[in-house]
């Protein structure tokens, strides 16, 4: 099953029960943006828990309100979260988030989609 949606901040694909979120280039995430991102993400959940593969390689910045919202409100219905990183900025962004957000959702960052999928599949809700 392939479902795709998108907004100003990201594009989404639902493939094999995993939601792929790819942020657009130079996106700056504040609370307002985070709400839109999460709302569109949840529209693909169909009320079910799902794994999220989130490509943050091109995100420019995310503020505290957005970080908190994503870690709290954004964590319901998420079985696990894999962040795709590569540049120094995206690596530090994910490390900062992992260190400060204390999200209850298993979260880790990866440099390849394959590794990320291996991680997400461990938490797949059957």
């Amino acid at each position: 099953m392939l479902v795709t949606v998108g907004n100003t901040y990201a594009t989404y694909e639902l493939i094999d029960d995993i939601i792929y979120i790819t942020y657009r280039k130079n996106v700056i995430l504040n609370l307002q943006a985070a709400e839109i991102v999460i709302k569109d993400q949840f529209s693909l959940h169909s009320g079910l828990k799902r794994g999220i593969l989130c490509d943050i390689r091109h995100v420019k910045a995310i503020d505290k309100a957005a970080r908190v919202y994503m870690a709290r409100e954004g964590s319901i219905l998420v079985s696990a979260l894999a962040l795709i990183v590569d540049s120094p900025v995206s690596i530090m962004m994910s490390e900062f988030y992992l260190k400060t957000s204390n999200s209850a959702v298993p979260t880790a960052s990866f440099k390849s989609t394959e590794e990320a999928l291996l991680f997400l599949n461990k938490y797949k809700v059957l």
Partner: peptide, 25 residues
Amino acid sequence: ERSSNNDEVEALIMTLNMFAEEMQN
């Protein structure tokens, strides 16, 4: 102020900004 660079220095700048934000809160 952030630039369009995506290197180690830019990562440090971003971290510093977020750190200041946490401290301010």
